[in-house]
Structures are given as C-alpha cells and as structure tokens.
C-alpha cells in the first residue's frame, strides 16, 4: 500500500494517511482537526501535572510507553549493557481551540534521559514550557539543556509554590543561565489563568521568532 512517507514519524508531513476506504471519504477527511503539541517539562515534582490539569478541558489522562534501546553506546545508563527496556509514564491534557485545531499538552516524564529514547514525544512539538521550582532550580536544569540542545523553543514558568517569591525573576534567570531571549513568567501551576499566560508567553515567543526570521 502506498503510504505518504515515513517522515511522519518526525511530524513533518501534513498529509492524510489512511487505509483503502479513505479514498471514498475525502470530503469527510477534511473535517478532522489539526493537532498541535506543547510539552510541559521540568524536574521531579515541579508542578507539570498540576499545570496540565489547570488548563486542560479534561482531567489529565495518563498513559505509558515501552521504550527500548539497544545497549550499544548506552553510556548514560550505567550498568546496562544489553537491550534496555523500560516503561515511562506520561500525562496529558487537551485544549480544543476550534473545530479545526486542538492543542495537546504533554507533561513529560521527570527523567529527561528517557526523552532521547522517545522521539515521538518531542518530535513535532510546537514548543515547551519548562517549569521550575524556586527552591530546587537544579531539578529543571536538564530540561532546559534538552530544549536548548534540540533547538526547541521554550519559555520558563516559575512555579511559586505557596506564593513564595523570595527570588526576583532576574535572580532566577541568572541562576538558570537563561538566554535573554527566553521568556520567564512567574506563575502558580494550579491557576488556570496563570497556565494560560505561560502558554501565551510561549506562543508570543514563537511568533517573535517567526517575524525575526521572515521580516
């Protein structure tokens, strides 16, 4: 059968993929929305699931994936020298923008080392929110490194647990060694309005990047 291409794995092609019968339903095919993906990342316990739940129209859903990687060259997973398989959990939510557009928000697994094995999770993402907890900034360093190294646009959301704002945005920026271009927003991960504002900061950031290169 003739499938568009394996490039779909990296989310690069908008083509419809379908079985034989789809030929008879071309009109209907146009009625499915587009899906866009935003990642909500950050270290263990920084409020990823909380933020996904705050902005999602459904309670966060939970699923798992089996990840497998051949042992050759797996030097970041000490002690593993044969085929490595693990189960990684993920939770996600949804925001229906319109009949034509749905945003899926993925709370990424806390252990970033698995992201490298899970291409489907990060490929094709519109961008990411990295949440940090001011009391434990270091747990989110790896997330920031990851998106920087992959060239995936991101914003930083500073989750102010219990309203603790004992450090200024500038201090946090410095501690994170954040690129001055990367927006940093203070928020409460439990608050829908705050979650929305963090996502809007991401979209504005993407739009600014867009006009910077085209204009």
């Amino acid at each position: 059968m003739d499938y568009a291409s394996s490039e779909h794995a990296s989310g690069h092609s908008p083509d419809h993929v379908s079985g034989r019968a789809a030929d008879h339903t071309a009109g209907r095919a146009g009625t499915a929305p587009l899906a866009v993906k935003i990642l909500v990342a950050g270290g263990f316990g920084v409020g990823k699931t909380t933020m996904v739940g705050a902005v999602s129209e459904v309670a966060p859903l939970h699923t798992e994936e089996y990840l497998t990687r051949a042992g050759v060259g797996v030097d970041d997973l000490e002690g593993v020298d044969s085929k490595f398989t693990t189960t990684v959990a993920l939770d996600f939510g949804r925001i229906t923008i319109s009949d034509d557009l749905v945003v899926y928000l993925f709370g990424t697994p806390g252990q970033e080392r698995f992201w490298f094995m899970w291409n489907d999770l990060v490929s094709g993402a519109m961008g990411a929110v990295v949440l940090v907890d001011t009391r434990r900034l270091e747990v989110s360093f790896a997330s920031i490194d990851f998106f920087e190294s992959r060239g995936i646009p991101f914003v930083v959301g500073v989750n102010c647990f219990h309203g603790v704002r004992d450090r200024t945005a500038e201090e946090i920026r410095a501690a994170l060694a954040l690129d001055p271009q990367v927006p940093l927003v203070l928020c409460d991960a439990r608050d829908r309005g705050d979650g929305r504002d963090v996502l809007l900061a991401l979209v504005d950031h993407l739009m600014a990047g867009q006009s910077a290169t085209t204009g």
Binding site: H8, S10, A22, A125
Partner: peptide, 19 residues
Amino acid sequence: SGYMWARSPQPLTRAGGLP
C-alpha cells in the same frame, strides 16, 4: 484494513523551520 483513517499532526517545528 480500511476501518479508520488517520490524520497526521500539523507540521510545526522542522529543522530551521518555524511554526
């Protein structure tokens, strides 16, 4: 087997590309 059809996600980030 022709029971379902699939729509790939919108291409958003590609190498050097922008949304």
